[in-house]
């Protein structure tokens, strides 16, 4: 149980910082004085939020691999995903997929068409908004990711 809680807190911290650094990719924190709050000045530094987004993305991918492997190999016998669990999982999968393509785009050279890059940028933003709304709904209505299989 102790280990499960540690994983949960690490996941929540990662999601918090990846979301914050993700929004930091837009020029909003300086405009809206948020970067003026002591300790949050880094939110207006685009390269800092860029590096932080990459590091948090690595952690999120690591967590996802950990959870998926555990679920497929053993967890399914004891618990199964709820509908909101599947929905959140699908949104995270979409975010990871579009994020990976954006990382590839960031290497030098002409990788993708301009329209596809716009699609990636907008879908990455739309997916995170949907994920945040879904998470808020699950928090308010106490919806869990999974339930016991024998229920």
């Amino acid at each position: 149980m102790h280990q499960k809680n540690n994983v949960r807190y690490l996941y929540l911290v990662t999601v918090f910082f990846i979301t914050l650094s993700g929004f930091g990719q837009m020029p909003i924190f300086k405009r809206y004085y948020i970067a003026d709050i002591p300790g949050l000045g880094w939110l207006a530094r685009f390269y800092v939020t860029h590096y932080m987004h990459y590091i948090c993305a690595a952690l999120l991918i690591g967590f996802s691999a950990y959870i998926i492997t555990g679920y497929v190999m053993a967890g399914r016998k004891k618990s199964e995903l709820t509908v909101t669990g599947y929905l959140r999982g699908a949104l995270i999968a979409g975010l990871i997929a579009t994020g990976i393509l954006l990382v590839i785009r960031n290497f030098e050279g002409y990788m993708f068409s301009h329209n596809f890059i716009i699609f990636l940028d907008l879908s990455h933003l739309a997916l995170v908004m949907l994920f945040l709304l879904t998470s808020l709904y699950c928090l308010i209505f106490k919806k869990k990711w999974s339930r016991d299989s024998n229920q």
Binding site: I55, A58, I61, G62, A65, Y66, V103, N106, F107
Partner: peptide
């Protein structure tokens, strides 16, 4: 190289899924 610095974090992104899988298998 402005973009090169972030692109150097590629190793972390590539290792992350392997580390996650190894941790899960180890725990199991």
């Amino acid at each position: 190289d402005s973009m090169g610095k972030a692109n150097n974090l590629l190793a972390a992104l590539a290792i992350a899924p392997i580390a996650g899988i190894a941790a899960a298998v180890g725990t199991l």
